[in-house]
């Protein structure tokens, strides 16, 4: 299948790209890794008139840790995140996520920025980034701004990025001592979207949950947090009965729909079970088990 016609630009700087987005407005679409966009174009589900290929812009592919954040350039490929030693050692939930996205070939091209900006609730990074309480750095004609992740996803395939803004960087706060996280995904087969995915990032203090954030994949039209389940856990002692309750609450607050991956009831039950498992695994990691 051949995509519809479009005009192609390959800017070499962020400002040039922003200029093109400003000039062409809603006709323009950014091409990053292209692993969601190009299939959509082949099916003619997407028919942008202008493609702004940002792969020629230098300096947007990196993973580095500063005092406060893990900084990830928007064009960083999933394969680079998967292989990063810092990610594997210090941000295991992010490593969990990168390694279950599509397949190794797709991960060579696919970017974390594209995964987030596409805002597909079936994508894996949104849940993880919500659980990490990350910040999104965007640049537009007026300069840079930082968007808290809770304000980033506003609808299906919709983010709070303006038409002439580019997602440049993802900032993940460095986890304090006693923190752990895990992302668990149930998929029918390799390369498929999640039936259900659960991301849990937590911090323990004096044997209690000091903080916990839970992100869910593909069980709502907008990437979501399981806020009621989080609220149930904070300040409590970790114990099996509580995890069970948190799983039930998360299953009740998500909004899955029936499709080829299962019925609504099935998906809710998976959320219940996988939430428990992810909490257990995150606690293990907080206790130093990788």
């Amino acid at each position: 299948m051949i995509p519809g016609k479009f005009e192609y630009f390959a800017p070499t700087s962020v400002s040039e790209a922003i200029g093109l987005l400003g000039q062409y407005g809603s006709e323009a679409k950014i091409l990053a890794g292209g692993q969601s966009l190009i299939p959509a174009m082949r099916f003619r589900l997407a028919q942008p008139e202008i493609l702004v290929d940002i792969n020629r812009i230098q300096g947007l592919e990196y993973v580095r840790e500063t005092d406060d954040y893990l900084e990830i350039g928007a064009l960083t490929r999933e394969s680079a995140i998967e292989k990063s030693t810092i990610v594997q050692q210090r941000y295991p939930m992010l490593a969990d996520t990168a390694r279950v996205i599509a397949d190794p070939l797709v991960r060579n091209m696919a970017t974390i920025g594209g995964n987030l900006a596409h805002a597909d609730p079936a994508n894996d990074h949104p849940a993880t980034i919500l659980a990490y309480n990350a910040r999104i750095v965007a640049e537009g004609p007026g300069g840079e701004r930082i968007i808290p992740v809770d304000d980033f996803f506003i609808g299906i395939f919709e983010t709070s990025l303006e038409r002439d803004e580019i997602l440049k960087e993802i900032l993940i706060p460095s986890p304090p001592g006693g923190s752990g996280g895990a992302y668990l995904k149930i998929e029918r087969k390799v390369g498929d979207y999640a039936v259900v995915g659960v991301a849990v990032q937590l911090t323990m203090e004096d044997g209690l949950f000091k903080s916990i954030r839970i992100g869910l994949t593909n069980v709502s039209s907008t990437p979501m947090r399981a806020r009621a389940a989080e609220a149930l856990l904070v300040g409590q002692t970790p114990e099996e009965a509580l995890f069970d309750k948190a799983g039930r609450v998360a299953a009740a607050e998500c909004e899955p729909w029936a499709d080829l991956r299962g019925s609504e009831e099935y998906k809710r039950d998976l959320v219940r079970v996988v939430t428990k498992r992810a909490i257990r695994k995150a606690i293990e990691r907080a206790n130093g088990v990788l």
Binding site: Y8, L31, G34, Q35, I38, P39, R42, L51, P104, L105, V106, N108, M109
Partner: peptide
């Protein structure tokens, strides 16, 4: 390696 059906 990449899938050549998914790059222009």
């Amino acid at each position: 390696s990449l899938k050549s059906c998914t790059a222009f």
